[in-house]
Design a protein around this nucleic acid. Sequence first.
DNA 1: ATGAACGTCGGTCCACTAAG
DNA 2: CTTAGTGGACCGACGTTCAT
Length: 222
Amino acid sequence: MAGEPGGSVASPEDLQLVRALRAGDEVAFMMLVERYGPAMLRLARMYVPTRVIAEDVVQEAWLGVLKGLDGFQGRSSLRTWIFRILVNTAKTRGQRESRSIPFSSLWSPNPESEPAVDPERFRSAGDASPYGWLDRPTSWEGVPEDRLLSQETLDHIQASIDGLPPNQREVIRLRDVLGWSSEEVREALDISATNQRVLLHRARSKVRAALERYFQEEMTKA
DNA sequence: ATGAACGTCGGTCCACTAAG
DNA sequence: CTTAGTGGACCGACGTTCAT
């Protein structure tokens, strides 16, 4: 699995960071938290019902990172390694929470539980990696660009993603929202390359279909 | 109430195609 | 050639329906 030759191994910068962290460099740690914290929180929100618990999960993950620092061998990038710890932590916590929380509360539009992904991310993440399912729409060619990028549309995209099965949701978020590479995603989620591709494909297909329905409804209304 | 039959859904694998 | 996206097929898990 992770760490085959040719994979995204730790960069010299990663290794230097790890050395600093092992030496107890607080500035290096704060830099890491600043760099990955927001993305970690969004990812954690996929597994647990509330933002508060997600924040808790992130904290727990950071503790796991610090504890496991000596075990980091640089066979994957530092980011992948950190997010893998986060995913494991969040999954464990998510299972625990699902046993104690009414299932319906996971899905109800609770105003307390803000969106897992800030809709703005859809555009800003585009800097590094454009969204596959937005750049070549199939059935909404007549839809003006500002309409495509409206807040309402972004909300709709997010709702579509929220409605996906967990694995598909994870993959599409990491790939298309956070802009990860396919290899980073399969390493972080510990899935095969083939599975990653299929999950992504199915997730995109479903989101695309949901958007097609949405635009069709909107255009017949107009 | 119970168990079999059936349908649906999601995960996985394989093959093909397109792009870089 | 490598990587990624796509579609089809298969399988197992799960839920629903229906006859007993």
